[in-house]
Design a protein around this nucleic acid. Sequence first.
DNA 1: AGCCGGGCTTGCAACGTTATACGTCCGCAT
DNA 2: ATGCGGACGTATAACGTTGCAAGCCCGGCT
Lengths: 336, 336
Amino acid sequence: MRVSLKDVAARAGVSIKTVSNVVNNYQHVTPAMRERVQQAIDELGYRPNLTARHLRQGRTGIIALALPELGNPYFAELAAAVIDAAALHDYIVLLDHTGGRREQEVLVSQGFRARVIDGLILSPIELEAEDLRERTENVPLVLLGERHYDLPYDHIAVDNVAAARTAVRHLIDLGRREVAFIGARRGHSQPAHLRLQGWREELLSAGLSVDDGLIATTEGWGHADGAAAMTRILETGRRPDAVFAYNDPIAIGAMRVLSERGMRVPEDVAVVGFDDVVEGHFGTVTLTSVSPDKEAIARMAVESVLARLSGQAPEPRRVWADYRLIARESTLGRST
Amino acid sequence: MRVSLKDVAARAGVSIKTVSNVVNNYQHVTPAMRERVQQAIDELGYRPNLTARHLRQGRTGIIALALPELGNPYFAELAAAVIDAAALHDYIVLLDHTGGRREQEVLVSQGFRARVIDGLILSPIELEAEDLRERTENVPLVLLGERHYDLPYDHIAVDNVAAARTAVRHLIDLGRREVAFIGARRGHSQPAHLRLQGWREELLSAGLSVDDGLIATTEGWGHADGAAAMTRILETGRRPDAVFAYNDPIAIGAMRVLSERGMRVPEDVAVVGFDDVVEGHFGTVTLTSVSPDKEAIARMAVESVLARLSGQAPEPRRVWADYRLIARESTLGRST
DNA sequence: AGCCGGGCTTGCAACGTTATACGTCCGCAT
DNA sequence: ATGCGGACGTATAACGTTGCAAGCCCGGCT
């Protein structure tokens, strides 16, 4: 049986509250008393019951993190960063994944499984603004990632349009003129997503034409999706001299197809990804990528939740995290 | 303010307990009453307070999963599988990562942060048997992975020795005779780990010599470690014709180095990894790998925890999960 | 008519903790 | 000596839920 304050109190011959005071380092406790109680605690191996503490205090010390899929290394790395950031504040992280499915995202945002949590960090994919508008839950919610809602919630992300423009600019500066975009969302009600928008804007501002034949949609965001999309473009007979992919796995899937078809990266086709996952650092051709500052994103997300919990930060804010473009072999060639 | 049973009861004009009965689908409730209460619940937007429920019931519905690092896609994919398996039983998953550091693993196994959990699934790296022997926590613990303790805890893993032998056998069958092993643990007190043991056993049983110069240790288990280790082997002047890596990231890091030095995979060096992560399916050269049945591992881990929670399964058991060797280009060449 | 039993509802206690408010004791200033 | 304030310890009441046992009501049986 678990030992409770009551048991310790009985053993030490003091009241329950005094034991509680010792446990919580309440200041008005004589050293002698403190030691007596501490000894009883040690002898019995007492450990506080957090559930009870949380019931009493109305807080659980748990933050939920809901991501589309852990299989994507970007999200896995982000999850690790969030866990660490939360630990700094003595919070622990409950992890959920939504598969990027709207239905699941709605459930999570409504607090579905997790009536145990103090706050929620959600990285939505299909979730619509109306879903959030209907949200009745009152645990603090912080949004991550590319989607962009005009709603009173904190939102943390890199400036996707600007970041995408930087990536495309890099390709144009290399002299590329036919820049494909791989990873648009199929049949999505929302205005084309921000990275696609950045691609478009940068092409236009460089005086290049925007050619829908160079946009490939994907079902998901994995290697296989990138490979399939690249294949589709090539099968139309198009021969782009550059590819900007929605993320790194898609870029790597595309590079695989290029290599299968005997097209060289970067000589024939330069490739830029997004997220800067470790995997991209070690391929036969390493991948140029936009690198969001994951640690900063994680830190700011956790801090936003906590700020809201403590009633600070009344104004919902959009926070831009840092990013940089890291050029590697897929746009520069191998440096031997 | 959150609405509680009391508020609903007041609204519906019934007792708290009756509302509780409705919420819990207690059978002796008249349809009329059920409807009346349900209406009050809906109007007020009542949601049960799980903390209170758990305090009352002594269970939290939360399982902790402690992994070495999420950055390794194998663990990320495993985490996803565990979350899904737990969800089937209405359990949610608290995630922790230990960095594979003994100190952290001890903390976790002692229930460190998580006095909130019903059970713990731990994938240890450096943890020693003595650490577990001193364990005082009484929440069920299930161990995952390669380490192997002679202690009364459930343990779930693939048969690493046999799996490693299968991988090495595959290389030998291709006619390779100089098979390097990359990813041994540096300065580890425990007998050389099981995959290394399998490598050794299979070489011996094939009548080949076991050459310590072909064993490379690593600090961690990432791409960079594999690359560094491969570099070290090559710099001794050795030219193995095959590599068996502790896991896929190490294998991929090694392949990168081979490619930098102009050695072809698989023609000059055949490579086999372990874990079958998605990344390996899409490199310029796809990676042959041992594929553990992650879903099965996750399922069995969760079920073991739950069985122990409900007092079943008195005998701690070691369970072997399925695995298969999936041959790809890194041992077969590109099929086109 | 009275009793019994089962279906339905309820009051109470308890899970383990902390906040509040109070009581006691001591030392010090008056 | 008396009064006062601060330091220290404690009793009690919550937090929101569910298990238990008891109570009520009604139909059917004796």
